Every structure is written in structure tokens, then in C-alpha cells.
Computed example of a mutant assay.
Amino acid sequence: MTVAVSEADASVVNVTALRRSTTSEVDVCCEVKLPVKYDVEAALQAQGRVEVQGLQNARVRIATEEGGAAVNRLQSLQVIYRTSSGPLLVKGKLLSSLQASATRVLSISGDMIQGGSVEVNAPKIECNLQSLHLNSLQLAADDVTLRVNDVTCHTSSIQAEHAHVLIGNYSGGMTWQFSSMSLEVAVPRLHGDSSVVATRGRVSLGCPTEYRYGICVTGQDVCMHREFKEVKCIAADIKDAAGDMKDAAGDMKDAAGDMKDAAGDKGRQRVLAGPSSPLLSVTLLEGRCSLVPWTWPRTRH
């Protein structure tokens, strides 16, 4: 069924498609052609799926249960997506802010999201995208998997019990907090003081060796590549991955302002390098934190 709507039609268009037999194997397909500026609100039940494409409007609202949604070449002030466990597919560029939530699992995959903000809330979040270019990013979940090739974000907040984060290049600011995590990210530029805090896990950071920002790492096992120069550290047994780090005795101010003194924490190590601001502060209580030189286009972790 195809429905074409012109500018002369009513300002609100309702389209309802029902399957008469619940045992039928035939899908109901409905195509609605709208003027490019029309807002869209779509609500689907069970396995119902929807795709919204080619619009330039103010708002798109999509609600599904187990069926998925796709946005294709969409330019909107705001996209709101609500689901139980239906995936969201981004085709081409999504030029919009995005608010997405799920009661069970939320999977977001595809190409690029560029806009003001992205806010995602769900018990489990799986995000696999080519790029994110945003003013702000907020993720809150029990379990987060985030894989993005390129991220530019003025500020981001990620909170999760368990996280697996793999980002090719990240430029911006960050406040990330996890109980356990596996993190691999290259940070060529930092916009303001940033922090990554985790109880346990593994961290690999790609950072510029010319110190575009300061680095402060506190952890159980800290390793730095030999290309990082003029490194200050407090620890009796800090591991120098390349063999040329200097031990600095005495007191050292905690530039992050909220980490415990490594000299008083048995088995902890602290490393400080580069300027005091902006500062990337990393705290990993259990596990290894490795710092490797950032290289373009991809850092070798």
C-alpha cells in the first residue's frame, strides 16, 4: 500500500496497517510519501519495522517493540527512538540530535551521526558506527559496547558496570566511569580536563608524544613507551616498558585533584607527563594501563 501526502492535505496524517490473521505469513507493507518538511511519528508493535528517509524536518519520533528502525539521509532537529529491543540502523548521515532508550537491549549501528547531542539509556547498549561528531554524548547502561572509528565530541559522559570501548581517534573531552572495562582509544586532542576511572580492567591509550595535553595515570601496572620523554613518576616498582623513564623522588601534586596519593597506596604507581592543563587523568585500580604513541591514521596499540 502506498499513500502520497501533498502540502494541501491535512496537517496530521494517520496511517494504520493491520494484519487480519495473526497466523498469516504475509507481511503488511505500507509506504507513505510526505513533503520533505513534515514531522513524523511512527509507532509499531511486535516485529514491525520502519524506515524514515530523505526528510528535513523538526522532529522524528519512532517507537517499536522488537522490530527495528532505520534512518536514511535524515536531517532533523531531534530524533527520539523508544524500543524494547529493536535495533536502530543509521544509513548515510544522520544530521540530528538523538535520544534513544530501550527496556532491554539497544543496538545502534551504521555510518555517521552529526548533531548537537546523543543520549542513550538502556540496560545493555551496543553501538557500532563509523563516526560521531557531536557537542555532547551521554551513555548510561549496565553493559556498554562502543566501537567507533572516529569521534569528535566537546564533552562525553559514559557510565557503566561493564564496558568494552574501542575508538580509533577521539578528540574532545570525556568523563568515563566503569566498574570493569576493556578500553582501547587514541586521543590526538583534548578539549578541557578529562578523566577515565575504573576499578579493574585493561587500558591502552594512544597519546601524542609532543604533549598536546598533560597525562596523569594512577594504577597497579603502568607501562609507557620510550618515546614519551620527561616523565615524572612515584612508585617503587614502576614498570618502564622501554627502559628510559626517570624516577622522581619526593612529593608530587595530584593535578587531577581527586586521586589518592600513590605513595600511600601499596602497589600503586603514578605517572605524570606533559603540561598541567588540559589534563587526561586515568585511574585503574586493578589491571594494566599502557600508553603508546599516537599515529595517524591509526595507532598501533
Rank of each mutant, 00 (worst) to 15 (best):
M1E: 08
M1Y: 08
T2A: 06
V3T: 08
A4Q: 08
V12Y: 14
V13Q: 05
V13K: 06
A17W: 00
R20M: 01
C29N: 03
C29Y: 07
P35A: 01
P35S: 06
D39T: 05
D39I: 00
A42Q: 02
A43G: 03
A46E: 15
E51R: 12
V52N: 05
G54C: 10
G54F: 08
A58C: 12
R59E: 13
I62F: 10
I62H: 04
A63K: 14
T64L: 14
T64K: 07
E66Y: 06
A69N: 06
A69G: 14
A70I: 07
R73G: 10
R73F: 03
R73K: 12
L77Y: 05
V79M: 13
V79P: 01
V79Q: 04
S84E: 15
P87G: 06
L88E: 05
K91M: 03
L95Q: 15
S96H: 04
S97M: 03
L98Y: 05
S101P: 03
A102P: 04
I108P: 02
G110N: 06
M112S: 05
Q114H: 01
E119C: 09
A122Y: 01
I125A: 09
I125L: 15
L129Q: 00
S131F: 07
S131I: 00
L137M: 06
Q138V: 05
Q138G: 05
Q138I: 00
L139R: 05
A140V: 06
A141L: 04
T145G: 10
N149C: 02
H154Q: 01
S157V: 09
A160K: 00
H162S: 08
H164N: 14
H164Q: 13
G168R: 00
N169W: 01
S171V: 02
S179H: 14
M181Y: 01
S182H: 09
S182F: 10
S182T: 11
P188K: 11
H191Y: 02
G192L: 09
G192P: 07
D193T: 08
S194M: 06
V196K: 00
V196E: 02
G201N: 12
V203G: 00
T209M: 09
E210K: 12
Y213A: 00
I215V: 15
I215Y: 09
V217L: 12
Q220A: 15
D221H: 14
D221K: 12
V222C: 04
V222E: 02
M224K: 07
R226D: 15
F228V: 08
K232N: 11
D237A: 10
D240L: 04
D240Q: 11
A241F: 10
A241V: 12
G243W: 04
D251T: 12
M252H: 10
A256T: 10
G264R: 13
R268F: 15
R270A: 08
V271D: 01
V271G: 00
L272E: 07
P275R: 12
S276M: 12
L279R: 04
L280N: 09
T283P: 08
L285P: 06
L285Y: 13
G287D: 12
G287L: 12
C289L: 10
S290R: 15
W294S: 01
P297L: 08
P297M: 05
P297Q: 12
R298T: 11
R298F: 13
R300W: 15
